[in-house]
Design a protein around this nucleic acid. Structure first.
Lengths: 190, 190
DNA sequence: TATTCTAACTAACAAGTGTTAGTTAGCAGC
DNA sequence: GCTGCTAACTAACACTTGTTAGTTAGAATA
């Protein structure tokens, strides 16, 4: 009964790559079928709709971020250390699935039934993030600037990692996360 | 002889907003016509194709960045000061046309005839950027880390500004640029 | 051997796509 | 009052879209 679900997974995997290159709307079921070496109609033996593929890509990633943030939030760490963990979380997830991150970033607006759910997760994530920064300012760990500018600046970099990680396979995730944390937290001024 | 070109400009302006919300591929000429209060066929009295609209949005912005970078490159400033000017360049252009920046970031792959030209401009921009960072490392102004990580981290933030600026109309461009420069260059550690 | 499951196929549909052709109403300049 | 321009219109085109229905060949199960 499709317990390993290989064929469906292959389709989603192939779709993820195509969506990254052209975006969800520009990829047709015939494009996807050709990339899979089959006819468009045959895809429907494995998936129910194009929408469902997008949902499978985006929602699982969004939930992974939510779980990661929950763990970091609860952990007994300094604010700076929590920021380090957030950087690691993004590097880890993006390294495992860089193409999927493209859809998460650029195609979320084409979620239909799951759009509100996704937006809720995203808002919660950002609220948790900014709360960590505010705590760091209160505890004198972080410089007293606009906390949203700080979050925006860090999160923009982390959200763009998917564009960059595939080009840099020689760098290992731990080293990249450390390098990024240093730049983001301590700046680049000597 | 259409010297002010108002109608065409209005169409491009409206298209820019729609492209930002749904992406180029998901916006139909009928969507655009409805937003303009006319029928799809009527658009063609003013523009030649959907492609042409995308080109008008993206290429002019890309050229503005190129010109800005050329001026900064030639200027007689320290590396850190040049980075400040780059931040200002992005904040200025994005403040003037935040919606267009969405297309520049997300829809450039749907340029057809102009794709190579665009990619050339982008590559040149990034080369100039990384050269400034390398000079700053050589001159001992900038900490000796991977220059591409530094560029990537700054550029990601600047490229994402379009998502953020429209929500923050109370902040003036100069102040935002200063705030961003501080965070990006000096970090957030106290 | 007979049956069911898997995963592909062909053929087709209704709706939507960008775009063209030809028309029309209003207005400016001669 | 005629001419030509602007900017809209209706109608239609050829093609593409996601998706469904029904079929088939081969492998696994009974």
């Amino acid at each position: 009964m499709n317990t390993e679900g290989t064929r469906r997974d292959e389709i989603i995997h192939t779709a993820t790559k195509l969506f990254k290159e052209k975006g969800y709307s520009a990829v047709t079921m015939r494009d996807l079928a050709t990339a899979m070496g089959m006819k468009a109609a045959s895809l429907y033996n494995h998936i129910n709709s194009k929408q469902e593929i997008l949902k499978a890509i985006i929602i699982s990633l969004a939930e992974e971020f939510t779980q990661g943030m929950d763990a970091i939030k609860k952990s007994d760490q300094t604010a700076i250390e929590k920021l380090n963990l957030i950087v690691e979380l993004h590097v880890d997830i993006t390294t495992k699935n860089p193409y999927g991150m493209a859809s998460l970033n650029n195609d979320w607006m084409h979620l239909e039934a799951q759009l509100d759910y996704y937006l809720g997760l995203r808002e919660r994530y950002e609220q948790d993030f900014v709360a960590i920064i505010k705590n760091g300012i209160s505890s004198n760990e972080i410089v007293d600037t606009n906390p949203e500018v700080v979050m925006f600046s860090i999160l923009s970099t982390l959200r763009s990692l998917y564009l960059w990680i595939p080009k840099k396979e020689e760098i290992n995730p731990k080293a990249l996360a450390q390098n990024l944390s240093d730049v983001l937290i301590y700046g680049i001024n000597k």
